[in-house]
């Protein structure tokens, strides 16, 4: 197991967003977290990525307690994430955005008097990721001028530029046209193989994407794990079908 969460509870005042969630992620897995709105998916993502400290329970990454250590330290340890609502640096170009991630990964951020333009390791690392995600030709375009699909790709690509061991994708295809969804998923799966990402965890509402790419699915409901298993088992689980997947799965 490279990532383990045990007995996670998260309270917002009286409201219990997570109620004893446990999960374990092994190397080589593509795990999807599904659930209706309010199931606790976003809270779980924020706890796993160190943004929120759990009220109880712990998150361990390679046997190290990383509960609530913050996204910056977690990213440096090897867990990266992308966001449901696309997050870019509006005034930075595609290349600069990816360079920032590579600078962080290589620990070059403390170089006050070094020339960024002359830093070949940073430039080549950024260009490699830009090409991998099909953004090479747009490398000089400021992020704010990119179409929405490319912004989403850039958000994900910058997380990949950290060369993380685990990547957590919060609805990687949300806000993207149906035609672009498969292309984005294919791109990020092939990119993860190319750069050696050991596990992908995604939160996703699109069941075609979930069942099409996952090795394992974790269904959340009212802050608890409703089911945890391979896609076939999840599809056959009546509780999951009734509360999470609905008719769409039955029609498959």
């Amino acid at each position: 197991m490279i990532l383990r969460a045990e007995g996670l509870r998260k309270l917002y005042g009286e409201f219990c967003a997570l109620d004893g969630v446990s999960l374990a992620i092994s190397a080589g897995e593509f795990v999807s977290i599904i659930g209706p709105n309010g199931a606790g998916k976003s809270t779980l993502v924020n706890v796993l990525t160190g943004v929120l400290r759990p009220t109880a329970g712990a998150v361990t990454f390679r046997d190290r307690d990383v509960s609530g250590i913050g996204p910056a330290r977690l990213a440096r340890l090897g867990i990266a994430r992308s966001f449901q609502l696309v997050q870019v640096f509006p005034d930075l170009t595609v290349l600069e955005t990816l360079q920032a991630a590579v600078v962080s990964r290589l620990g070059h951020g403390a170089r006050l008097f070094a020339s960024l333009a002359a830093d070949r390791a940073v430039r080549e690392g950024a260009l490699e990721i830009a090409e991998l995600f099909g953004l090479g030709r747009k490398r000089h375009v400021p992020a704010r001028h990119l179409p929405q699909g490319d912004k989403k790709l850039l958000d994900v690509a910058s997380a990949f530029a950290l060369r993380p061991q685990i990547i957590l994708l919060d609805e990687p295809t949300s806000g993207v046209s149906t035609a672009d969804k498969t292309a984005i998923m294919e791109t990020l799966v092939s990119a993860s193989k190319r750069i050696g990402v050991q596990a992908i965890i995604q939160v996703e509402h699109d069941m075609d994407i979930v069942f099409g790419y996952s090795d394992r699915i974790i269904a959340l409901h009212e802050g608890r794990v409703l089911a945890d298993g391979p896609p076939a088992a999840i599809e056959a689980d009546r509780r999951v079908v009734d509360t999470v997947i609905g008719r769409r799965a039955r029609a498959r």
Partner: peptide, 21 residues
């Protein structure tokens, strides 16, 4: 410098900068 680039990421989007480490 690389340091200057990191400052620009913080100016534009500190939340995203944090997740990049």
């Amino acid at each position: 410098s690389p340091f200057g680039l990191c400052l620009k990421t913080i100016r534009d989007n500190p939340t995203k900068a944090e997740t990049l480490g």
